[in-house]
Structure formats: C-alpha cells, structure tokens
Simulated assay, not measured.
Amino acid sequence: MTDARSVELRDALARVEERIVAACSASGRDRGDVQLVVVTKFFPVEDVRRLLALGVTDVAENKAQEASAKLERLTADERAALTVHFVGQLQTNKARQVAAWADVVHTVDRARLVAALDRGAEQAGRDLDVLLQVDLDAPGEADEQGHADGGHRASGSRGGAPADGIPALADEVGRAEHLELRGVMAVAPRGGDPERAFAALARVADGVRSAHPRATLVSAGMSGDLEQAVAHGATHLRVGSAILGPRPAPR
C-alpha cells in the first residue's frame, strides 16, 4: 500500500526510530538490542498490512477477541512475517484463546493464569513465550485474590504482580511444560517518575534473570517514556499513539 495513510505511518515510524537511536546513543546501547513493538490495538487490519510493508515485524494487541478476528484476516504469509505480542490484562477464561495465536504474552501476573496459558498452549500444540508483569505501584505481597479475574486492582494500578511476588511466579512458569519464561514487563505508574519506575523494573529483571538465565527480555516504555525505558535496559518498546495516532472512534 502506498496511500496517504502509508505515508503517514512511514513518517511516524521514522520519527520514533530517530528517538530510539538517540536514546540508545545516549545510554551507550546498541540499537540492535532494542525491538520496537507497534501497538495496533483498536486499529484495523489494513494498518497492520501497511506496517508490514514498511518493515515492521512486531505488533501488539490487548483484546483477545478483537485480535483473533484481526489476525484471521491476514494471509498465511502475512501472519508468518509477524511476531504478535499480547499486552492486555488477561482473564483466565480467555487464556486458551490467546495461547492459540499469540507469540508472546507480556502480562502474566498470577499462578492461575500461568496454569491456564499452559493448558491453552498444550491444546494448541505449541509452546508460548511469556513475560511477567510487575506492578510498580504495589509494594506489598502478591495477592491472588486481589488479582482475581474480573476483580478491581488498586486505584492507579497499571496491572501486574507486586515485585516481591515475582520470584515465586517465575518459578511457577519454569515448571510449566508449554511456557517459556522470557523476562519481565511493566508500565510506568500514572503521574510517577518513569526513571525511578524503570530503574526498579531493572532490579526485578536482574533478579529473575539470575534464577532463569533465558529470561533476558525487558518490555518497558511507550510513546511518552521510551527514552527512560531504553536508559534502564528495555529490550522491547511498546509504542502505539506516536506511530498510529489517536485511537479511532468506536464504530
């Protein structure tokens, strides 16, 4: 596609690429160590195709049903060219559906979800990469009841398990037959200091990696704070609005 929307996306990708390159240079990191994941939630499959044509290899979705319907419209070759990340809060009863199509799930935050994803991956005949979501707002102990499906999290929370619950959750994933623990993920708290948040995430990531050496990924940083995330070791940046623009109005 070479329409006006493709030109818009091309230019936005170039601006984000400049920011990533500058952030890597400022922190002494290799640009090749940082993967851009374009968050395509709420945007049509036509935009996914445009992004593919522009060289994007990784996209992210956060609604199980919407993502499944969107991916079904891709050709086999288009789907094979993409790594699809699931970055939304995931209810246990949706785990089987997501395990059937996601390549990486970023938001694993409780033992029940680990078990559900493992069953779903087994039923789909595949293995699934997962990241543990760290709640940088929550200093207390991990609370399975507080993270129950359909329940409410603490006010201001962006989701995830408390940092002190992450080691046990990592071990839980390590025991799952069809899941591969690849690292950690977090969203900076609303109104907080992203520098402080991502420094805390880096410490959690180091602890997980010491016990699980293959867990090398750190998913952090979005349109407004990708520079701070790169400075603190992010390997995956989840960028949506800076590339795709404002969320489209509901149809």
Rank of each mutant, 00 (worst) to 15 (best):
V130A: 02
V104C: 07
Q145V: 13
D127M: 01
D143A: 12
V130S: 00
L131F: 10
D127E: 15
R110K: 15
V134F: 11
L71I: 11
A142C: 12
A124C: 09
A116P: 10
A102V: 08
W101R: 06
V105F: 11
E78L: 10
D103H: 14
Q97K: 13
D127T: 15
A121V: 06
V134E: 07
L74T: 02
H147R: 14
D137I: 00
L136A: 09
V84F: 05
L113F: 14
E144H: 08
R79V: 06
Q91D: 12
G120V: 11
Q89H: 15
D109M: 07
E144Q: 09
W101K: 05
A115K: 01
R79W: 01
A142H: 08
H106A: 03
A76M: 04
D135F: 03
R96M: 05
A99M: 11
L132E: 01
E122S: 08
L128W: 06
E144D: 15
N93C: 11
V105L: 04
D137Y: 00
W101N: 09
A115C: 00
E72C: 06
A116D: 08
V87C: 00
V114P: 02
V108P: 02
D109A: 07
A76T: 15
W101H: 07
D135N: 14
R96K: 14
V84E: 07
E72P: 04
W101T: 08
G88C: 12
A80Q: 07
